[in-house]
Protein backbone atom coordinates (compact mmCIF):
# COMPACT_ATOMS: atom_id res chain seq x y z
CA UNK A 1 0.00 0.00 0.00
CA UNK A 2 1.41 3.38 -0.90
CA UNK A 3 0.89 6.66 0.85
CA UNK A 4 -2.03 7.77 -1.28
CA UNK A 5 -3.76 4.45 -0.72
CA UNK A 6 -3.16 4.72 2.98
CA UNK A 7 -4.74 8.14 2.94
CA UNK A 8 -7.70 6.54 1.20
CA UNK A 9 -8.00 4.04 4.01
CA UNK A 10 -7.97 6.79 6.59
CA UNK A 11 -10.70 8.52 4.64
CA UNK A 12 -12.69 5.32 4.56
CA UNK A 13 -12.71 5.12 8.31
CA UNK A 14 -14.15 8.61 8.50
CA UNK A 15 -16.59 8.30 5.61
CA UNK A 16 -20.16 9.17 6.55
CA UNK A 17 -22.08 8.99 3.32
CA UNK A 18 -22.17 6.39 0.60
CA UNK A 19 -20.50 8.73 -1.89
CA UNK A 20 -17.69 9.42 0.55
CA UNK A 21 -17.18 5.71 1.03
CA UNK A 22 -17.04 5.19 -2.72
CA UNK A 23 -14.47 7.93 -3.06
CA UNK A 24 -12.34 6.70 -0.17
CA UNK A 25 -12.41 3.20 -1.58
CA UNK A 26 -11.36 4.59 -4.89
CA UNK A 27 -8.31 6.07 -3.20
CA UNK A 28 -7.58 3.01 -1.14
CA UNK A 29 -7.79 0.81 -4.21
CA UNK A 30 -4.97 2.77 -5.75
CA UNK A 31 -6.85 4.39 -8.62
CA UNK A 32 -5.57 7.82 -7.75
CA UNK A 33 -2.04 6.50 -7.18
CA UNK A 34 -2.12 5.00 -10.62
CA UNK A 35 -3.09 8.32 -12.11
CA UNK A 36 -0.33 10.14 -10.23
CA UNK A 37 2.14 7.45 -11.21
CA UNK A 38 1.14 7.83 -14.84
CA UNK A 39 1.77 11.56 -14.59
CA UNK A 40 5.15 10.96 -13.01
CA UNK A 41 6.03 8.45 -15.68
CA UNK A 42 5.28 10.96 -18.39
CA UNK A 43 7.25 13.62 -16.61
CA UNK A 44 10.19 11.26 -16.08
CA UNK A 45 10.19 10.34 -19.73
CA UNK A 46 10.29 14.01 -20.67
CA UNK A 47 13.07 14.64 -18.20
CA UNK A 48 15.03 11.68 -19.52
CA UNK A 49 14.90 13.10 -23.03
CA UNK A 50 16.03 16.52 -21.86
CA UNK A 51 18.73 15.12 -19.60
CA UNK A 52 19.98 12.99 -22.47
CA UNK A 53 20.41 16.16 -24.48
CA UNK A 54 22.39 17.67 -21.63
CA UNK A 55 24.50 14.69 -20.61
CA UNK A 56 25.25 13.04 -23.92
CA UNK A 57 25.71 15.83 -26.44
CA UNK A 58 29.20 14.61 -27.11
CA UNK A 59 27.79 11.34 -28.36
CA UNK A 60 26.50 11.38 -31.89
CA UNK A 61 23.65 9.03 -31.21
CA UNK A 62 21.37 11.35 -29.27
CA UNK A 63 18.86 12.82 -31.69
CA UNK A 64 19.48 16.54 -32.02
CA UNK A 65 16.21 17.88 -30.81
CA UNK A 66 13.50 15.87 -29.21
CA UNK A 67 12.69 18.97 -27.22
CA UNK A 68 9.73 20.26 -29.18
CA UNK A 69 7.83 17.09 -28.67
CA UNK A 70 8.73 17.13 -24.97
CA UNK A 71 7.53 20.65 -24.34
CA UNK A 72 4.28 19.97 -26.14
CA UNK A 73 3.59 16.93 -24.07
CA UNK A 74 4.46 18.75 -20.86
CA UNK A 75 1.91 21.44 -21.68
CA UNK A 76 -0.68 18.73 -22.24
CA UNK A 77 0.27 17.23 -18.91
CA UNK A 78 -0.11 20.63 -17.25
CA UNK A 79 -3.56 20.92 -18.88
CA UNK A 80 -4.53 17.56 -17.44
CA UNK A 81 -3.41 18.59 -14.01
CA UNK A 82 -5.26 21.87 -14.28
CA UNK A 83 -8.41 20.05 -15.37
CA UNK A 84 -8.11 17.74 -12.39
CA UNK A 85 -7.73 20.73 -10.10
CA UNK A 86 -10.75 22.42 -11.65
CA UNK A 87 -12.89 19.39 -11.05
CA UNK A 88 -14.27 19.82 -7.57
CA UNK A 89 -16.20 16.58 -7.42
CA UNK A 90 -14.13 15.07 -4.68
CA UNK A 91 -14.35 18.20 -2.61
CA UNK A 92 -18.14 18.14 -2.95
CA UNK A 93 -18.28 14.50 -1.96
CA UNK A 94 -16.02 15.05 0.95
CA UNK A 95 -16.97 18.46 2.23
CA UNK A 96 -20.57 18.29 1.08
CA UNK A 97 -22.68 19.92 -1.63
CA UNK A 98 -23.08 23.48 -0.38
CA UNK A 99 -26.55 24.93 -0.47
CA UNK A 100 -27.08 28.54 0.60
CA UNK A 101 -30.51 29.64 1.74
CA UNK A 102 -30.92 33.24 0.69
CA UNK A 103 -33.67 35.75 0.57
CA UNK A 104 -34.96 38.99 2.06
CA UNK A 105 -35.50 39.29 5.81
CA UNK A 106 -38.42 37.25 7.06
CA UNK A 107 -38.68 35.13 3.94
CA UNK A 108 -38.62 32.07 6.21
CA UNK A 109 -34.97 31.08 5.91
CA UNK A 110 -34.39 30.21 9.55
CA UNK A 111 -37.67 28.34 9.79
CA UNK A 112 -36.64 26.18 6.88
CA UNK A 113 -33.24 25.53 8.45
CA UNK A 114 -34.69 24.62 11.80
CA UNK A 115 -37.29 22.44 10.22
CA UNK A 116 -34.68 20.49 8.24
CA UNK A 117 -32.34 20.25 11.22
CA UNK A 118 -34.96 18.28 13.11
CA UNK A 119 -35.68 15.83 10.34
CA UNK A 120 -34.13 12.37 10.24
CA UNK A 121 -31.95 13.25 7.26
CA UNK A 122 -29.92 15.68 9.34
CA UNK A 123 -26.49 14.32 10.18
CA UNK A 124 -25.55 16.90 12.75
CA UNK A 125 -27.94 16.77 15.62
CA UNK A 126 -26.01 18.56 18.32
CA UNK A 127 -27.53 21.88 17.50
CA UNK A 128 -26.10 24.34 19.96
CA UNK A 129 -29.06 25.54 21.98
CA UNK A 130 -32.29 24.78 20.17
CA UNK A 131 -33.41 28.21 21.03
CA UNK A 132 -30.81 29.70 18.73
CA UNK A 133 -31.15 29.59 15.03
CA UNK A 134 -29.14 27.02 13.18
CA UNK A 135 -26.42 28.39 10.91
CA UNK A 136 -25.71 25.23 8.99
CA UNK A 137 -27.14 21.76 8.73
CA UNK A 138 -25.65 18.61 7.25
CA UNK A 139 -28.01 16.30 5.45
CA UNK A 140 -27.51 12.89 3.89
CA UNK A 141 -29.67 12.84 0.79
CA UNK A 142 -29.52 9.57 -1.14
CA UNK A 143 -25.94 8.97 -0.05
CA UNK A 144 -24.67 12.46 -0.79
CA UNK A 145 -23.59 14.87 1.86
CA UNK A 146 -25.41 18.21 1.67
CA UNK A 147 -24.55 21.24 3.76
CA UNK A 148 -27.23 23.91 4.11
CA UNK A 149 -26.16 27.40 5.13
CA UNK A 150 -28.44 30.05 6.49
CA UNK A 151 -27.62 33.60 5.50
CA UNK A 152 -28.57 37.03 6.69
CA UNK A 153 -31.57 38.61 5.02
CA UNK A 154 -30.54 40.62 2.03
CA UNK A 155 -31.73 44.21 1.80
CA UNK A 156 -30.48 47.75 1.38
CA UNK A 157 -29.36 49.07 4.75
CA UNK A 158 -27.28 51.81 6.33
CA UNK A 159 -26.70 49.87 9.52
CA UNK A 160 -22.96 49.01 9.56
CA UNK A 161 -23.46 45.83 11.62
CA UNK A 162 -26.15 44.53 9.36
CA UNK A 163 -24.01 45.37 6.36
CA UNK A 164 -21.27 43.07 7.63
CA UNK A 165 -23.84 40.29 7.92
CA UNK A 166 -25.02 40.93 4.38
CA UNK A 167 -21.47 40.94 3.06
CA UNK A 168 -20.94 37.58 4.70
CA UNK A 169 -24.18 36.32 3.20
CA UNK A 170 -22.97 37.22 -0.26
CA UNK A 171 -19.74 35.34 0.36
CA UNK A 172 -21.65 32.26 1.39
CA UNK A 173 -23.84 32.57 -1.65
CA UNK A 174 -20.82 32.90 -3.91
CA UNK A 175 -19.17 29.83 -2.45
CA UNK A 176 -22.34 27.73 -2.68
CA UNK A 177 -22.95 25.03 -5.25
CA UNK A 178 -26.66 25.81 -5.15
CA UNK A 179 -28.71 28.75 -3.87
CA UNK A 180 -32.24 28.38 -2.56
CA UNK A 181 -33.83 31.71 -3.21
CA UNK A 182 -36.64 32.03 -0.66
CA UNK A 183 -39.55 34.31 -1.40
CA UNK A 184 -42.56 34.85 0.82
CA UNK A 185 -45.62 33.83 -1.19
CA UNK A 186 -47.34 36.92 0.16
CA UNK A 187 -44.62 39.39 -0.78
CA UNK A 188 -43.41 38.35 -4.17
CA UNK A 189 -40.88 41.19 -4.37
CA UNK A 190 -38.01 39.26 -5.75
CA UNK A 191 -34.55 40.32 -4.73
CA UNK A 192 -31.69 40.75 -7.08
CA UNK A 193 -28.97 38.14 -6.70
CA UNK A 194 -27.23 39.18 -9.87
CA UNK A 195 -24.47 40.99 -8.08
CA UNK A 196 -23.31 37.58 -6.84
CA UNK A 197 -21.54 35.24 -9.19
CA UNK A 198 -24.50 32.87 -9.30
CA UNK A 199 -26.17 31.86 -12.53
CA UNK A 200 -29.88 31.20 -12.71
CA UNK A 201 -29.09 27.55 -13.20
CA UNK A 202 -27.39 27.51 -9.78
CA UNK A 203 -30.57 28.69 -8.15
CA UNK A 204 -33.96 27.33 -7.13
CA UNK A 205 -36.70 29.78 -6.30
CA UNK A 206 -38.61 28.50 -3.27
CA UNK A 207 -41.82 30.15 -2.20
CA UNK A 208 -42.48 29.92 1.52
CA UNK A 209 -45.30 30.09 4.05
CA UNK A 210 -47.56 28.07 1.81
CA UNK A 211 -49.87 27.27 4.73
CA UNK A 212 -50.85 30.94 5.03
CA UNK A 213 -51.99 31.22 1.48
CA UNK A 214 -54.59 29.82 -0.79
CA UNK A 215 -53.45 26.68 -2.61
CA UNK A 216 -54.20 28.35 -5.92
CA UNK A 217 -51.61 31.03 -5.21
CA UNK A 218 -49.03 28.33 -4.69
CA UNK A 219 -49.73 26.61 -7.98
CA UNK A 220 -46.85 26.40 -10.43
CA UNK A 221 -43.31 26.46 -9.08
CA UNK A 222 -42.05 25.16 -5.80
CA UNK A 223 -43.60 26.20 -2.55
CA UNK A 224 -43.14 24.89 0.97
CA UNK A 225 -44.54 25.21 4.42
CA UNK A 226 -42.44 24.60 7.49
CA UNK A 227 -45.60 24.39 9.52
CA UNK A 228 -47.28 21.55 7.65
CA UNK A 229 -44.16 20.20 5.98
CA UNK A 230 -45.83 20.45 2.60
CA UNK A 231 -43.46 20.80 -0.33
CA UNK A 232 -40.34 20.01 1.72
CA UNK A 233 -39.90 16.54 0.28
CA UNK A 234 -40.12 17.82 -3.22
CA UNK A 235 -37.53 20.50 -2.36
CA UNK A 236 -35.19 17.91 -0.90
CA UNK A 237 -35.65 15.79 -3.97
CA UNK A 238 -34.60 18.66 -6.20
CA UNK A 239 -31.53 19.36 -4.05
CA UNK A 240 -30.61 15.70 -4.06
CA UNK A 241 -30.88 15.53 -7.83
CA UNK A 242 -28.65 18.55 -8.25
CA UNK A 243 -26.09 17.08 -5.85
CA UNK A 244 -26.06 13.75 -7.67
CA UNK A 245 -25.45 15.47 -10.97
CA UNK A 246 -22.62 17.51 -9.48
CA UNK A 247 -20.94 14.41 -8.11
CA UNK A 248 -21.38 12.21 -11.12
CA UNK A 249 -20.13 14.85 -13.49
CA UNK A 250 -16.60 14.24 -12.27
CA UNK A 251 -14.66 11.08 -12.85
CA UNK A 252 -14.04 10.52 -9.17
CA UNK A 253 -10.32 10.76 -9.88
CA UNK A 254 -9.87 14.31 -8.85
CA UNK A 255 -7.27 15.08 -6.26
CA UNK A 256 -9.04 14.65 -3.01
CA UNK A 257 -6.95 16.10 -0.26
CA UNK A 258 -5.63 19.60 0.10
CA UNK A 259 -2.17 18.09 0.30
CA UNK A 260 -2.61 16.56 -3.13
CA UNK A 261 -4.07 19.71 -4.60
CA UNK A 262 -1.17 21.83 -3.37
CA UNK A 263 1.50 19.60 -4.88
CA UNK A 264 -0.34 19.12 -8.14
CA UNK A 265 -0.92 22.81 -8.46
CA UNK A 266 2.76 23.54 -7.81
CA UNK A 267 3.85 20.87 -10.30
CA UNK A 268 1.44 22.29 -12.85
CA UNK A 269 2.89 25.78 -12.36
CA UNK A 270 6.42 24.47 -12.89
CA UNK A 271 5.41 22.74 -16.11
CA UNK A 272 3.84 25.93 -17.39
CA UNK A 273 6.90 27.94 -16.42
CA UNK A 274 9.17 25.46 -18.18
CA UNK A 275 7.02 25.63 -21.27
CA UNK A 276 7.11 29.41 -21.29
CA UNK A 277 10.86 29.66 -20.70
CA UNK A 278 11.72 29.12 -24.35
CA UNK A 279 14.44 31.75 -24.35
CA UNK A 280 16.14 30.24 -21.31
CA UNK A 281 19.10 27.88 -21.31
CA UNK A 282 18.04 24.25 -21.52
CA UNK A 283 19.52 23.57 -18.09
CA UNK A 284 17.09 26.05 -16.54
CA UNK A 285 14.09 24.47 -18.20
CA UNK A 286 15.40 21.10 -17.07
CA UNK A 287 15.53 22.49 -13.56
CA UNK A 288 11.89 23.50 -13.76
CA UNK A 289 10.97 19.98 -14.79
CA UNK A 290 12.98 18.69 -11.84
CA UNK A 291 11.02 20.98 -9.54
CA UNK A 292 7.75 19.69 -10.97
CA UNK A 293 8.94 16.15 -10.34
CA UNK A 294 9.94 17.04 -6.78
CA UNK A 295 6.40 18.17 -6.14
CA UNK A 296 4.78 15.13 -7.69
CA UNK A 297 7.22 12.98 -5.71
CA UNK A 298 5.29 13.95 -2.60
CA UNK A 299 2.46 11.85 -4.01
CA UNK A 300 4.34 9.11 -5.84
CA UNK A 301 7.69 8.81 -4.12
CA UNK A 302 11.04 9.93 -5.43
CA UNK A 303 12.43 9.12 -8.86
CA UNK A 304 16.21 9.05 -8.52
CA UNK A 305 18.71 10.44 -11.01
CA UNK A 306 19.83 6.87 -11.53
CA UNK A 307 16.32 5.85 -12.59
CA UNK A 308 16.32 8.67 -15.14
CA UNK A 309 19.66 7.47 -16.45
CA UNK A 310 18.10 4.00 -16.75
CA UNK A 311 15.37 5.50 -18.94
CA UNK A 312 17.99 7.17 -21.11
CA UNK A 313 20.10 4.04 -21.49
CA UNK A 314 17.09 1.94 -22.43
CA UNK A 315 16.23 4.26 -25.31
CA UNK A 316 19.48 5.59 -26.62
CA UNK A 317 22.68 4.00 -27.67
CA UNK A 318 25.13 5.99 -25.59
CA UNK A 319 28.44 5.21 -23.96
CA UNK A 320 31.93 5.09 -25.39
Amino acid sequence: MDLVEAEGLAELVQAETAAQRRLAKYLADGHLSRRYDAWMKRLSQARALIEAELDFTDEGDIPGSVSDQVWQDMQLLADEMAAALDDHTAEIVREGFRVAIAGPPNAGKSSLMNFLAKRDVAIVTDIAGTTRDVLSVDLDLDGNRIVLFDTAGLRETEDPVERIGIERARQTINAADLVLHLVDLGEPTSLDLHDTSKLDSDMIVVRTKRDRHHPAEAAGGLSVSTVTGEGVDSLLKQISQRASVAVQGGQLVTPLLIRHRNHISAACDWLRAAGAAEDHALELRAEMLRSAADDLAHLTGRVTPDALLGLIFSQFCVGK
Partner: peptide
Protein backbone atom coordinates in the same frame (compact mmCIF):
# COMPACT_ATOMS: atom_id res chain seq x y z
CA UNK B 1 28.86 -4.35 -17.63
CA UNK B 2 27.02 -1.07 -17.65
CA UNK B 3 23.49 -0.33 -18.87
CA UNK B 4 25.00 2.05 -21.36
CA UNK B 5 26.79 0.69 -24.37
CA UNK B 6 30.51 0.97 -24.21
CA UNK B 7 31.21 -1.94 -26.55
CA UNK B 8 30.29 -2.11 -30.20
CA UNK B 9 28.81 -5.55 -29.57
CA UNK B 10 26.35 -3.97 -27.11
CA UNK B 11 25.46 -1.26 -29.57
CA UNK B 12 24.64 -3.75 -32.30
CA UNK B 13 22.78 -6.18 -30.06
CA UNK B 14 20.75 -3.56 -28.24
CA UNK B 15 20.18 -0.97 -30.92
CA UNK B 16 20.36 -2.97 -34.15
CA UNK B 17 21.47 -1.39 -37.32
CA UNK B 18 20.27 2.16 -37.03
CA UNK B 19 22.06 4.25 -39.55
CA UNK B 20 25.47 3.41 -38.21
CA UNK B 21 27.25 4.29 -34.99
CA UNK B 22 29.59 7.25 -34.80
Amino acid sequence: GPRYCPSIEDKIVRFGDRDGHQ
